Amino acid sequence: MSIVEHAVPPLSLQPGQLLARGAARHLVSHGFACVEELVPTRGLRVDVMALGPKGEIWVVECKSSRADYMSDSKWRGYLEWADRFFWAVDSDFPTELLPDDSGLIIADAYGGEIIRMGPESRLAAARRKVMVQKFAFHAARRLHLLRDPDMHPQWD
């Protein structure tokens, strides 16, 4: 059985996960590698972290509804872990709720489009190194678990 055959079908994903899938697909089309649900530090979990072809790190927070956005108080904590920050929402989301000083991606389960580029705030070299290592570790762990789903790692 191939890794693709282990993939979760889109119909079994939650609305925010569908947005993450579409946003990641769009970023991949721009040369980024993406992982979902990455923990940059204890207490925070970003929906999508993207590593660009020049080593840039973008964070995408997915919001499936007004209530989902209004209940999120952690998103500002993500800013210090990325060079750029984006919201990913669907075409029906009231985008006027989102801060103007952040990026915006309109997405669905199959793709997306960057509507507004998030402002750049370059990470310090030491922080970037830590995040690239976390990204690589997380991506490798995900790949390993796809290949061997019965394995019970002691990584966490």
Rank of each mutant, 00 (worst) to 15 (best):
E120F: 11
L18Q: 05
V60N: 03
V48Y: 04
L104N: 02
L13W: 05
A125G: 00
P15G: 05
S102L: 04
V8W: 02
Q17T: 02
P9C: 11
M151E: 06
G31I: 07
P15E: 06
M1S: 11
K74Q: 12
L51T: 07
D150T: 10
L18P: 00
G52Q: 09
L97T: 00
H144T: 10
K63C: 07
A126Q: 12
D83Y: 02
V39W: 08
L18A: 05
D68Y: 07
V39Q: 15
W81R: 01
L19M: 03
D148W: 14
W155E: 07
R25M: 13
T41K: 13
R127I: 13
L13G: 02
P15Y: 02
D92M: 07
T41C: 13
L98F: 08
E120P: 05
A136K: 06
K63L: 06
A88L: 04
D90F: 01
G16T: 07
L143M: 12
E37W: 14
M117S: 12
S64T: 02
H138C: 11
A7E: 11
V28E: 14
M151T: 14
V28R: 14
P15K: 02
R127D: 12
D156N: 10
L11V: 14
M49S: 07
R84W: 04
K54Q: 14
E56Q: 15
S73R: 15
F135Y: 03
F32H: 10
I3V: 15
E96W: 11
S64Q: 07
